[in-house]
Simulated assay, not measured.
Amino acid sequence: MSPRLGTRHECGVLVLTTNQPEDHSFWVDIGTAARSGQFALGLLFFSQDCFPPELIRNRMSEHASGLVYAACSTAGEIGGPQSDTGQCLAVLFPKNNFFATTVRIDGIRSIGFDRIVAQVKEARQTFERASNNLGKDADQGEIFAVCLIDGMSVVEEMVTAALHWALEDIPLLGGSAGDSMRFTQTSLIHNGDIGDDCALVLFFKSAVPFKIFKTDNFVPTERKLVVTRSDPERRIIYEFNATKAATEYARAVGIDPSSLSPMSFASHPLVVRVGGEYYCRSVQKMNADGSLSFFCAIDDGIVLTVAEPTGMTRSTNEAFENVVREIGDVDFVLGFDCVLRRIDAQNRQATQRIQKIYQKYNVVGFNTYGEQYLSMHLNQTFTGIAFARPAQNTGERT
């Protein structure tokens, strides 16, 4: 497979990818696109094991200093020349179909709900005023927002709720940045500024019809685990049912505690019932003391249910088919897919089938440490925004 691949979709979105950190032509292509003045904003998703954030910043400064962009590190990339991780993907949105702006929220671990609401509400109002001053086409198109957030911040629920409150009726989706399953430090870049403990919010007004959607593939069982001792601030559970957490979890899923691994957690997610629906509260890792760290919020007294994944290929395909029924043929999809779904697909030898679905619908995105969807922070879910195809011809390869 070629180390570099480019696609210009029918809506004008340009996708460039590489798996070679020293691929000079990749950065030259981004620079050429930026200097054309045709693009409103760039999104970059990168493996920081292969593409250090400083490299991203320096190359963008050298080749595309005039392009507004947001970037985040991943737990895997979707849509490039290889199927796992070790890539850098650039998604450039054209001005003729998209109006876009960005805002960076710093210090999300300490800033508090009200200050996030105020900052995002001000940014939203500024965006709406600017988009309404575009001229005769101002009334054309719908608005959506994308969130990229530090996946090690442990405050995604609070931030997502604050964003939902500030955005009002603007739909939100996004993903938590990853660090290739090291669980040490993620990286986000906003126009050259590198950091963590932050969130990037991107506002889009799209002249292209779109549909925001999600899909998961788990069903609850009858097996219950009650959180009897935890550290909610750090998302650590020490005890289930008054027993060491790892031991009780392993018993509930029928695995020897010494065999617990990311594959175990991906194959046997835990879910919580909220408003009649079940949402994943996925295990991130087992700690040396037998406690379990989680990707989502937990607390004492919460009742978690052991779930079993079922039919990932079927449920994923059905979700995309439902989108097609609603908006017609899909041009491309910006997708945020939990890393545990990728691991579970590998466990069940479904990776190639899932990849074929993503390739069919031109999915570009990354594997996350959590997904944002409207007002919810989720796990073990695919969230995406599908853009309708304006014509029948396929994207042009470059």
Rank of each mutant, 00 (worst) to 15 (best):
S2H: 13
L5T: 12
H9I: 05
E10Q: 14
V13T: 12
L16R: 01
N19S: 14
H24S: 12
H24F: 10
F26M: 01
W27T: 05
I30N: 00
T32F: 06
T32L: 08
R35L: 08
G37D: 08
Q38E: 15
A40W: 02
L43C: 10
L43H: 09
S47E: 05
Q48Y: 08
F51C: 03
P53N: 09
I56E: 03
N58F: 06
A64W: 03
A64E: 05
L67F: 04
Y69S: 01
T74N: 06
T74W: 05
G79S: 08
G79L: 04
G79C: 05
Q82E: 15
S83F: 10
C88I: 07
V91P: 01
K95M: 12
N96M: 10
T101C: 09
T101P: 06
T102F: 07
I105W: 00
D106Y: 10
G107P: 06
S110F: 09
I116S: 03
V117Q: 08
A118S: 14
Q119M: 12
K121I: 07
E122A: 15
E122L: 13
A130K: 09
G135L: 03
L148P: 02
D150A: 02
A161I: 12
L172E: 01
S176T: 04
D179T: 05
M181G: 04
M181I: 11
T184Q: 13
N191K: 10
D193E: 15
A199F: 05
F203L: 03
F204T: 03
K205T: 06
S206E: 02
F210R: 00
F213L: 03
K214W: 08
V219L: 13
V219Y: 07
V226K: 13
V227K: 01
A242E: 15
A246S: 15
T247M: 12
Y249F: 15
A250Y: 02
A250R: 02
R251V: 07
D256E: 10
S261Q: 06
M263S: 15
A266M: 02
S267W: 07
H268W: 08
H268M: 06
R273S: 13
E277P: 05
C280I: 06
K285H: 11
N287Y: 03
A288S: 14
A288W: 10
S293Q: 13
D299V: 03
D299A: 15
D300F: 08
V303A: 09
A307Y: 00
P309Y: 00
T310L: 07
T313H: 14
F320G: 02
E321W: 10
N322L: 13
E326V: 10
E326F: 05
G328M: 08
V330H: 00
V330D: 01
V330K: 01
L334W: 10
F336G: 02
I343R: 00
R348E: 10
Q349Y: 11
I354R: 00
I357A: 03
Y358E: 15
Y361V: 04
F366Q: 01
E371Y: 02
N379K: 06
G384A: 14
A391M: 12
N393H: 15
T394F: 13
G395W: 11
R397E: 14
